[in-house]
Amino acid sequence: MIPQHELTGLILAGGQGRRMGGVDKGLVSFAGRPLVAHVRERLAGRVAEVLINANRSLAAYGEFADRVVEDAEGGYQGPLMGIYSGLRAATTPWLVVVPCDTPALPEDLVARLVAGLGEADIAVACDGERLHPVVALIRTALADDLGAALAGGERKIDRWYARHAWCRVDVSDCPAAFANLNTDDDKRRLEQALHGEPANR
């Protein structure tokens, strides 16, 4: 088992939110609080430090993070660049990566990823039907390798994972926990499912 002091949490909030009209998705209200606040609760107290990868609204995100980490290179190059930036910023051997728009993640997500890692260098959540590559536990020593891959033009997370010893972690008992909120309708439906709030607001 990996002790808490060897784990850093990273919330990916550096995207452009294009499918939600360009809003800063992590700060969108969900059940009365920003999405990122719900996600942070899954990491706080389970990791040594919570980082948020963001490229705008840095002060706002700073309220929910120990540190806010901007992309190592500009231009909104995607989640793999956010992961790289987190791997570089972390001061622990392991990084737990989660997206900012999954407020229903399991409370024991960190423990599940750690328990499922085995001898691998990367553990990726799998809901029984598909992988969730931005819900993962990654050895931070892979930062330089990822930097080289990015420099070579790689932007596909699954292709980079495939270069290393990685494993699936079974989370098929709670597949709905990994639903991404890409539209306002997605958000309203999940709010109603979790909190009984009206879906037609």
Rank of each mutant, 00 (worst) to 15 (best):
C167W: 05
L105G: 05
H195E: 02
A162Q: 14
N55M: 06
I122C: 05
A37C: 12
N180H: 14
G153Q: 05
Q192P: 00
A115L: 09
R56H: 06
G62H: 07
P198Y: 04
D185P: 07
G62M: 12
D66M: 05
T91V: 11
G17N: 08
A37E: 08
A90I: 01
E41A: 12
G153D: 06
R18L: 15
G74E: 15
E107M: 04
V23Q: 02
R18I: 11
I157S: 12
V124A: 12
V135P: 04
A59G: 03
L131D: 15
I138P: 01
V124I: 13
A31V: 06
P175A: 09
K187C: 12
E129P: 08
R163V: 06
M81P: 05
V39G: 13
L12Q: 01
C174L: 11
Q16T: 07
L190T: 00
G75Y: 13
A123S: 09
P103F: 00
A193I: 07
L43V: 04
N182S: 06
D71R: 04
A120G: 10
V98G: 14
R139T: 05
A90C: 11
Q16D: 10
L87N: 08
R188I: 06
L12G: 01
K156W: 06
G78H: 02
A136W: 01
A199D: 07
S172E: 14
H132C: 08
H38L: 08
R155S: 08
V96P: 15
P3K: 00
I138A: 04
N200Q: 10
A179L: 09
P3C: 03
A59E: 09
G116S: 10
Y61H: 03
S85W: 00
G128F: 09
A193D: 01
L80P: 00
A72E: 15
G9Y: 04
A120N: 11
M1N: 10
D127N: 13
L150C: 12
A111Q: 15
P198V: 02
M81A: 14
D186F: 08
E63Y: 11
R56C: 01
L10P: 02
A151Y: 06
E6Q: 15
R155N: 05
L194K: 00
D71I: 09
F178M: 10
A193P: 00
D185I: 04
A148I: 14
A13S: 08
L87D: 13
S172Q: 13
I122K: 02
E73D: 13
G32S: 12
E49L: 10
V169K: 12
A143H: 09
A151W: 03
G153R: 07
R88F: 02
A149I: 06
L190P: 07
R155E: 03
A48V: 05
Q77P: 03
E73S: 13
A115W: 05
G15I: 07
L12F: 03
D170T: 04
L12E: 04
K187W: 01
A89H: 02
D121Q: 14
R46G: 09
G82V: 07
L95E: 01
A165H: 09
L142F: 08
